[in-house]
Design a protein around this nucleic acid. Structure first.
Lengths: 223, 223
DNA sequence: AATAAAATTTAGACAAATCTAAAAAATAAA
DNA sequence: TTTATTTTTTAGATTTGTCTAAATTTTATT
């Protein structure tokens, strides 16, 4: 009934996973600065993670998680993001205040708990920040979040957030039937003023200015 | 943002609180056997708790929590019981499987989290085992859980659990309109066969056998 | 009241996670 | 390709929580 890995070990695995997603390979200093700790402490932990067979590591060379390590990382990320979703959707927290609490909750060990929570929340695909939530097998779909200017033409996407929170832009978007969750695609880009022509799914075709496009963020599945 | 007390310290405080509720005063051996640890470890921790001013302790004498210690204990108990309630009511766990998970969740530090959870759950007064949940100030109403044979005559009480889980007893109780949460009182006790006459609140008067009475547990506010 | 038994505490050790300061290895620069 | 710089690792301490074995204090029993 004792957790397989300590909170500390889990935090290292999570940090390494995060860094190797960005840079491919990971260094001791990277981890130290990511985790606000000392390089010597990182080295100490690397040895333990290697002994536990979560890590490919030879001293003075770079390192990365092996398959088992990635599996562990994805389960922690799953827990973190499901708890964040819970805090925002059920307990009415703002998305800016949930991270710290989820840092604690992600270390609760029960697998059954997290699977039941997932079900209770309706199997959400992304957390309140738009990041994907791995399923109980660790599978997830990478969705990219970009503003409309950077959305490839003919790529179907879903509105995930609005940059500018002014009443004015919301009024404009509302008029054009664009809201959070709306599925749409860019049909044409006009180089002259960077305005866009959008096809709102199952709806009309509308035109928006560069200024608006910059403030509408969408996500779409990669590949 | 670091928790004020470690999980280990919190577990000791909780155990001491539990024991002093039962026996008034607490001994080193009591705590050791309650926590499945060694007396020497208890002594070590007592010193730390005393240094932290949670405990009245002189060596070789007994000890007990001071006001601050009791406050801390009640907040942990509050968290434990609210999480148990959540697990049973929202995530459909059985009450026999929630204790261990709540042992972990009770150490999550955010006060705001627990107050929001309390609100989300509708400010429940008791956990799934019928034990009282302290409010955010640590106040709670003691309710006693007894079987119907031991319920004083004319004492209004609420059905809190059923001992025997057979289909047969549930069918019988269902027929007599007795369910979890039903409010009732004992009007008459027949010494001949220990059968009881009950008044179901806002409903009929019914008679049940000793066998049934033994398996129906109720709770009522003390004093 | 003296002694036996039980409870409690101390002394000293250990594991986990962290740190500082110094040494070693790898990389960059002259 | 030496030398200088940066990165990484080691050596040795520290803190927290735990343990065993021995010593001490309290309580119970003749």
């Amino acid at each position: 009934m004792v957790p397989k890995y300590s909170s500390s070990r889990e935090n290292y695995v999570k940090a390494i996973f995060h860094l190797q997603e960005i840079h491919g390979t990971v260094t001791t200093n990277d981890v130290a600065s990511e985790m606000q700790t000392r390089p010597a402490s990182v080295t100490d932990m690397l040895k333990k993670l290697k002994a536990q067979k979560l890590l490919l590591y030879e001293k003075y060379k770079g390192f990365k998680l092996n398959t088992e390590g990635r599996k562990v990382a994805l389960q922690i990320i799953r827990k973190h993001r499901l708890w964040e979703f819970f805090l925002v959707e059920k307990l009415r927290f703002g998305w800016d205040e949930v991270h710290e609490i989820a840092e604690e909750l992600e270390h609760i060990s029960s697998k059954k708990l997290i699977d039941r929570l997932d079900e209770f929340l309706g199997f959400p695909k992304t957390d309140p920040h738009g990041d994907p939530i791995p399923d109980s097998q660790g599978r997830y779909t990478i969705s990219r979040q970009v503003d409309l200017l950077n959305l490839p033409v003919n790529q179907i996407a879903e509105v995930s957030s609005i940059g500018d929170q002014s009443v004015e832009i919301l009024e404009l978007l509302n008029h054009k039937h664009i809201a959070l969750g709306t599925r749409l695609e860019v049909k044409k880009k006009f180089a002259f003023d960077n305005s866009l022509e959008l096809k709102i799914k199952n709806q009309s075709t509308v035109t928006i200015s560069e200024h608006v496009a910059k403030n509408v963020f969408v996500k779409y599945d990669d590949e």
